[in-house]
Nucleic acid binder design. Structure first.
Lengths: 209, 209
DNA sequence: GTCTATAATAGGATAGAC
DNA sequence: GTCTATCCTATTATAGAC
């Protein structure tokens, strides 16, 4: 039950709590993780946690905010932007996957608790993110860039890939985030694009932007 | 906190426990769900649960078994079969998605607890399922039916779509399971097939088989 | 900012009547 | 097979010294 790779260098206690808690939540669930286990992983005593966070819930709440706020901002920006919707979706996907791949927290547990009544106040921002993402997809289908697939299905598949990547990455930042991001975004676009030869143009435009 | 749609007809108590528990586990996590909440949803008293299951853990363990045993059997059968690997993957995917879409339990929480030390004894079968699925994918890449993509990535994307479908379906059997199954399996194959025109032949062969 | 000691309660499980 | 009553442990959080 020792900490993973957090002890070296000068990482503040509050930050180490977030990192170790995120790993334990991913492995044992939010409710399945006791404050003692978190404290053990951080190598402090259990009550010392409460100097940094008022409750255990607030540790999870901060992880949720970290996950949702930046990502929602980028999705909303791309949703409001002009030009090819397929290109905007690609840009958003690459950004989100890079974020996931470089995040020092294991955000696996976030999706698992977001429907828990205990975190009801965090649902609004999650829904805003979903709306923004969905509007880009709708535009890509309506404009004819994507196959005439069920937009619900396309949205779901995209979310599932992102969620899967979060679980896979597990808060261990990888050096080749941009490669992973391109591979996954390419996988999604290949499944959805009407004309797969457009992929090259989209990637080129994303580079230059 | 009333039960959802389980009270009508003659559903045995043990069965209702599995159904209601699966929904609560999905929403609040295994550890976040108390035996009192399960009992309330089933409309019995909390100690009555222990007439049907020796511990709360055993309820979850049975849901894990339900999820993994049948699916693993089908994946292993297709992995051992002859012929086009792309076709065998399509058959497996359609079967698995139909299973998910018709299952009366919300198996969302299974993936979330399978790495919990409390369910360590359930990991072996999960790993066997993963190996079988992986071997079909490897064959499809090696035979040249699939693009020369990272097989790790392909496997992950497939698992993520299946996992996403489990969360989406949430134990509410849908009438059009075969349509959903075809759509999702098509999404995956379109992203992976070297020649997308093969899709028609694969579907035709799957029908006749 | 971390510690020891402890309060307060929630939750899993048992005993035994009906 | 379900009930009431209850035990017992684990867990969150607080108080107050250093």
């Amino acid at each position: 039950m020792a900490n993973t790779a957090t002890k070296n260098e000068e990482v503040p206690t509050r930050e180490r709590i977030l990192r170790e808690a995120s790993r334990l939540f991913a492995r044992k669930g939010f409710h399945g993780t006791s404050t003692r286990e978190i404290a053990d992983a951080v190598e402090i005593r259990q009550p010392s946690l409460f100097h940094h966070f008022p409750t255990k819930r607030d540790i999870m709440a901060e992880l949720i905010d970290i996950d949702h706020s930046e990502v929602a901002a980028v999705a909303e920006r791309e949703a409001a932007a002009e030009g090819s919707a397929a290109l905007r979706l690609y840009r958003y996907l690459v950004w989100d996957i890079c974020f996931i791949c470089q995040c020092p927290y294991d955000l696996t547990s976030v999706e698992g608790v977001i429907d828990d009544p205990l975190f009801a106040d965090k649902m609004e921002r999650r829904d805003a993110l979903k709306r923004a993402r969905r509007s880009i997809i709708d535009e890509a289908v309506e404009s004819g860039e994507f196959l005439d697939v069920d937009a619900d299905l396309a949205e779901k598949a995209i979310v599932w890939v992102l969620q899967g990547d979060i679980v896979e990455t597990a808060g261990e930042p990888v050096p080749n985030a941009d490669v992973i991001a391109d591979q996954l975004a390419t996988f999604i676009l290949r499944a959805l694009l009407k004309d797969q030869d457009q992929l090259g143009a989209i990637k080129a435009a994303a580079q230059s932007g």
